[in-house]
Write a protein that binds this DNA or RNA. Sequence first.
RNA 1: GGCGCCGUCGCCAAGAGGUAAGGCAGAGGUCUGCAAAACCUCCACCCCCGGUUCAAAUCCGGGCGGCGCCU
Length: 313
Amino acid sequence: MKRFAVAVLGPTATGKSALALAIAERYGGEIINCDSTAVYRGFDIGTDKIAAADRRGIAHHLIDIADPTDDYTAAQYARDATAVIRDVHARGRLPILAGGTGFYFRALTRGLFPGPGRDAALRQRLETIAARREVTFLHRLLRKVDPESALRIQPRDLKRLVRALEVYFLTGRPLTAHFADTQSPIADVEVLEIGLRLPAADISRRVTRRVDAQFARGLLDEIRALLERGVPEAARPFGGLVYRQAMEHLRGVRDEASTRALIAQENRRYARRQLIWFRKEPNLSWFDGPGESTATIDAVQRVIAERLQERER
RNA sequence: GGCGCCGUCGCCAAGAGGUAAGGCAGAGGUCUGCAAAACCUCCACCCCCGGUUCAAAUCCGGGCGGCGCCU
């Protein structure tokens, strides 16, 4: 029989961490982060990482596993998470994925094609071409070597154009030809997918509160300390939500009040994108309510209990 | 009661004769090694009525509504 795992997914600020914690306590679980920025060490406040003191003795995995200068990827995540899930199962405990990065979750549960990874030199060359000519030049190039992918990828979508071309030049086969070989690294695990959902107005309120809290907790000092420690401004996690805007503020682009407002706004947009993404997950069950509320926790635990019972039979 | 100003999308707002910028908000979408990223799409019969004109959100008249000032 397949092993069992739970995933707590959904937009930002819906209370995923709290819900995951409750489930972990109830079912002897360990939490596995599924958030692309929380993997970076030193980025704590802006990522809303759960503090060690607040973990109630529950093990949290895949947090603080990468240096700020690393380029952590979905593929790496899929590998790491697969290994952690195996360990947790070996310990006889329940793995609980928790986070909002849909792409990472999909990379883990459905897999990525087993092709080549990033090739920094090749990417550099392609990006230089895009900068000198125009992004759409890469699209025309792709149309010649991999028309099927060119149809799918927008003419200005630099990142995906580079990747498609990279794979083609490295393997001589178009991207789409590789897709058939895609396999889930955890095909032997049954994942119960829980989605947390809140009305837009609630998300908005919570996000505003969270941004204020992040500034109060010293978000700006955290960034200054990282910079002083020598983390370059171009480091990956600085390019993400919260940090990007806060960094601009430190450079004098805008005052703090409008920076807070902007971060809240970006959070709202992010939440919407996440919703659109997770809607596509075919086996996800939605729960309407904040993850910390007992009503939500009870409802989710009921569903988990049911599933556990079914598996007994 | 009189005088003046104003009335463009849910909000802010451009536009002053040639067939409705932009921002916010909202909605939808793509996504196979940068994904808290990148990219794409949709969203106004300009308060009403009449007039002038080939053509009016833009000019004129009259309503209605708002704001300000005066008596």
